[in-house]
Design a protein around this nucleic acid. Structure first.
Lengths: 280, 280
DNA sequence: GGGATTATTCCATTATAGTGGAATAGCTAT
DNA sequence: ATAGCTATTCCACTATAATGGAATAATCCC
C-alpha cells in the first residue's frame, strides 16, 4: 500500500476508484473486476457491455478480455463475441476445495442434517462483505429456496449473517456492511441498532434463528463453525417451512448445533493434510 | 498481439517468456502463473517459494501476491505467510458451472453409469494442453484411481486424450501436445505415429478403450461428448479392473456410448438457459 | 439503401508497473 | 551471542500497460 493512501481489504474496485479518482487502474484489479462482474451477471457478455457496466475504458477492457481468454480465465460463449467465466476458474475452484478442509468435510454433515430433518441444509460463508451459500443440500420438501448457491446477498437479510460478523465490534460491523444492505427485500429498512442487538444475541447464544425476511414462509436456523479461533469461518443452516420449524424447533436447533460443533471440532483437531497418492 | 510476435493460445507463461526473453512480463499473466502454480502444488506456499519456483522476480511476486490476497483470489493459509488459492476462486468456479450446461447436466449421467456398471465413471476435459478429470463418480469397488479430479495429466497417457484431440489434424495435434508428454509413466516413450494412429481409430469409432498406462490393473473406456459441432468438448469414461472390463466389454461399451450420445443430444438441443428466480 | 447507432480496433501519450539490486529482518545452528 | 543463512521489504529506473480518442466495422431501423 502506498503512503498516504488507505485501501482496505474487501473494498470493491469501485470504492477504490472513488478514492483516487482519475488515477489509472492496475490491469490485475480490472481483470478481477471483470470476473466479478460476470459472476454477478451470471451469463455471458460482450466486451463492450462489460466496459460500460464496470465503467472501464473500452480499449483496456478489450485487451484484458483478450488476455483473460488466452489464459483460460474467460471463454467465448457464443459466436457473437460474448465471453463468460472460463474453465480454468472451475479447476482453480476445485483445487481450492481440496485444500480447504471445510468445504471437503461439510458435505457429509449437510447430508446428515438434511436426512435428520428432511429440511434444506446449507453451508454459508462471507464473500467479501456479502453473505453467500457455499453449499446446499435440498431437503425432501421441494419448495423454493430464497437464494441460490454462490449468489451474494446482503448480510442483514440472513440469520447466518448475524453469526458471521459476530467476532467484530459494533463499529467494525457497521463499517463492514454497506449502508444500503440494511434495506430489506420488502424495501423496509432494518435499524442498524436492531441488527447489532441481533448480533449480540447470536454471539451469546452461538446460534440464531428467525423467520426469513427473503420470503414469507420459511424459518432459518444458523449455527457457527469455528476453526481454532473465535471467528465463525462459516455457518451451518437449516431452512424450514415455518410450521415445521415451530413444531420441531428444539430438535432442529439441537441437531444443527451438534453438527456445527462436531464439524468445528474436526476442523480444529485435524490441521494435517493428507498427501495425495501419486500416479501408480 | 503485437506485430512480429507470435504468441499462441494455451502456451504456458514460461513458453512465452522463452520467446521474448528478458522482456518484462505483464502482471496479469504472472498472476495467472501464480494461481496455476499453487493449483499444481496443491498446498500453500510462501511468496518467496513461489518466486523461486516460477522464476519470477521476488519483488514482483511479493507485490502480486499481496494484490491477489486483497482481491480474495489468494488467502493466507497459515501464520507463516503461506498463501493458497482463495475463496473467490471457489465462487467463480461455482458460477462457471451454473452457466456451463455440461458440468451441470453430466452429474446424473455419471451416477447412472456408475450404477449400471458398478465401476468408476468420469467426465474428462482438456485444460489447456493437458487432460483433466473434471468430475468423478466412484464405483462400488474401492480401488485406487490413477488420477485425481483436477489434476493435469499428459494427453497421451489417457484413452480420453485420443478423443479430445480428434478434431485436429495430425500436425496440429503434434503441435499441441508438448513433446515430453509422450513419455509414459513407466519412462518409455510412445511413438507419436502410434498415438496419431490411435487418434484416427478413436475418431472413426467415436470411442476408444485401452489398458491404462497409468497402472497395471485397469482398463479405460472413453466416449466423446459433442456440443453442436464436431469437436469433443469432453468425454465420459469408465475405469474398470481389467477382468471386469474383459467380461463386460460390450455392455460397458454400449452403455457408455449411449450415455455420451444422450448427454450430447441434451446439450445440443437445449441452448436456452433457464433464467433464475428472484428473491421472493 | 442509407443514415444512425453501437461495437470493435487502432494509435500516440505518459503515468506507473515490473524490475534488479540493495537493505533489512528473521531464522538456525553453533 | 554471533555468524551465516533465507525471507522480506525498500527504492530508483525505465519499458510498457492503461488510457482517451479517433478510425473503422458491424448492426439496426426506417
Amino acid at each position: 500500500m502506498g503512503p498516504g493512501r488507505v485501501v482496505e481489504k474487501n473494498m470493491t474496485a469501485e470504492m477504490v476508484r472513488d478514492i483516487d479518482s482519475g488515477r489509472r487502474m492496475r490491469g490485475l484489479d480490472r481483470a478481477v473486476e471483470i470476473l466479478d462482474y460476470l459472476r454477478k451477471r451470471r451469463r455471458p457478455a460482450r466486451p463492450n457491455e462489460i466496459a460500460v457496466d464496470i465503467a472501464a475504458p473500452k480499449s483496456t477492457t478489450y485487451e484484458l478480455v483478450d488476455l483473460l481468454v488466452n489464459s483460460g480465465m474467460l471463454e467465448y460463449a457464443d459466436k457473437e463475441g460474448r465471453v463468460f467465466l472460463g474453465r480454468k476458474l472451475y479447476f482453480l475452484g476445485l483445487a481450492y476445495q481440496t485444500q480447504f478442509d471445510l468445504t471437503r468435510e461439510c458435505k457429509s454433515y449437510l447430508d446428515q442434517l438434511a436426512q435428520a430433518t428432511h429440511e434444506t441444509s446449507q453451508l454459508c460463508m462471507l464473500d467479501g462483505n456479502k453473505y453467500t451459500v457455499a453449499m446446499m443440500r435440498e431437503g425432501v420438501r421441494p419448495f423454493r429456496i430464497s437464494s441460490d448457491v454462490g449468489e451474494r446477498t446482503p448480510i442483514p437479510w440472513t440469520a447466518s449473517g448475524r453469526l458471521l460478523v459476530a467476532h467484530m465490534s459494533d463499529e467494525e460491523i457497521l463499517d463492514f456492511i454497506p449502508a444500503q444492505d440494511f434495506i430489506l427485500p420488502n424495501k423496509s429498512r432494518l435499524a442498524p441498532e436492531k441488527f447489532l442487538a441481533d448480533v449480540a444475541q447470536a454471539r451469546a447464544a452461538q446460534f440464531y434463528s428467525f423467520d426469513s425476511v427473503a420470503d414469507n414462509f420459511t424459518h432459518c436456523f444458523a449455527a457457527p463453525i469455528h476453526q481454532g479461533g473465535p471467528i465463525s469461518v462459516a455457518t451451518l443452516c437449516l431452512i424450514a417451512p415455518r410450521e415445521d420449524a415451530a413444531r420441531n424447533y428444539e430438535r432442529y436447533r439441537e441437531t444443527l448445533i451438534a453438527s456445527a460443533r462436531e464439524l468445528s471440532d474436526k476442523l480444529g483437531t485435524a490441521p494435517v493434510r493428507i498427501s495425495k497418492a501419486g500416479v501408480a
